[in-house]
C-alpha cells in the first residue's frame, strides 16, 4: 500500500465517521425535541420512553439525562430521577439547574443520602470534576498549541521571559494531560448507584445468609467500591460498608 493510498483511506474513514455521526445525531435530536414536547404536554411516561430511546442509540448528553431525570420525577420514579440527575451532573458539572434538581430529588427520598465518594486523586487534581472531558480536552489542545508555539519563539528569542513562558506552559500542559486522563478515567467508571426497591438489606458479605448490617431505602445515592458475583459493595459517607445484589441498584 502506497503512502497516497493510506492517506486516502484515512480521509475516507474520517469522512464516513463524521457522516455517520451526523446522521445518528440528527435522528436523536428530533427524538429529543419530540420528547421535550411530550414533557411539556404532561405526557411524562411517553417522554421517558423517547429520552431512553435516544440514550440507547448512543446519545450521551448531560441535558438529556437532566430532562430524563425530570420526566422520571414527574412519573413518581424518584430513584431513576436521582440516578439521571447524578449522571447529568457528571457531564454538566457546573450546571446549577442539575445541582438544584438533584438536591431536591434527594431531599424527597427517605434516606436523603448523596453518598458519592470523591477519588483520592481529586484532593490533588481538585479541579478535575469541575469540567467535563470535552472541556478538559479543549484546554489540553489549546495548551499544547500554545506550548509548541512558545517553544518555536524560544528557539529564536532565548530570553528569561521566553524561558519562563515555556516552563510555565510545560507545567500547565503536564497538568492538563494528567487531569484530562484522570477525567477520562472517572467518566469511564461510574462508581455510584441508586437504590431501586422500597427497602433493601445491606449484608456483611455477598450472599443473603450473611448478617444484615443496615437498611437503605429507595432513591439513596450510594458509592459502589467493588463488585463480586452479581453483588456490589457499597460505601456510605460515614464509613459504613456492606453488600447488596446488583439488581437492587440502578447504575
Amino acid at each position: 500500500m502506497t503512502g497516497t493510498q493510506l492517506k486516502l483511506k484515512v480521509m475516507l474513514f474520517l469522512g464516513m465517521t463524521a457522516l455517520w455521526s451526523g446522521t445518528v445525531f440528527g435522528e436523536s435530536s428530533s427524538q429529543i425535541t419530540q420528547a421535550n414536547q411530550l414533557y411539556n404536554q404532561n405526557q411524562f411516561q411517553e417522554a421517558v420512553e423517547l429520552y431512553e430511546q435516544a440514550l440507547a442509540e448512543g446519545k450521551t448528553n448531560g441535558h438529556l439525562y437532566f430532562n430524563l431525570g425530570n420526566a422520571y420525577f414527574r412519573t413518581g420514579n424518584l430513584a431513576r430521577a436521582v440516578l439521571n440527575y447524578a449522571k447529568a451532573q457528571n457531564l454538566l458539572p457546573r450546571d446549577e439547574d442539575v445541582e438544584a434538581n438533584l438536591e431536591y430529588a434527594v431531599r424527597q427520598t427517605e434516606d436523603q443520602l448523596d453518598g458519592r465518594k470523591a477519588h483520592l486523586l481529586e484532593s490533588v487534581l481538585f479541579w478535575t470534576r469541575d469540567f467535563n472531558l470535552k472541556e478538559h480536552t479543549r484546554a489540553l489542545l489549546w495548551l499544547n498549541l500554545a506550548f509548541w508555539v512558545t517553544m518555536a519563539v524560544w528557539l529564536h528569542i532565548k530570553t528569561q521571559a521566553s524561558r519562563s513562558a515555556r516552563n510555565i506552559l510545560l507545567g500547565l500542559l503536564i497538568l492538563a494531560l494528567m487531569s484530562t486522563g484522570f477525567r477520562g478515567y472517572l467518566e469511564s467508571r461510574q462508581n455510584f448507584g441508586v437504590v431501586l426497591p422500597k427497602t433493601i438489606d445491606i449484608h456483611s458479605g455477598w450472599n443473603t445468609d450473611s448478617t444484615t448490617l443496615f437498611q437503605l431505602h429507595q432513591g439513596a445515592l450510594v458509592s459502589v467500591s467493588q463488585e463480586k458475583e452479581q453483588w456490589s459493595e457499597i460505601e456510605l459517607p460515614d464509613g459504613k460498608k456492606g453488600w447488596t445484589q446488583n439488581s437492587s441498584l440502578a447504575r
Binding site: S21, F25, S28, S29, I32, T33, N36, Y39, N40, K59, T60, N61, G62, H63, L64, F66, N67, N70, A71, L91, L92, D97, N132, L133, K134, T137, E187
Partner: peptide, 13 residues
C-alpha cells in the same frame, strides 16, 4: 427541562 437542539450535542468523545 432544558430545550433547544444546540444543547444536545454529544458530551462524550
Amino acid at each position: 427541562i432544558h430545550t433547544g437542539p444546540e444543547v444536545f450535542d454529544n458530551h462524550i468523545l
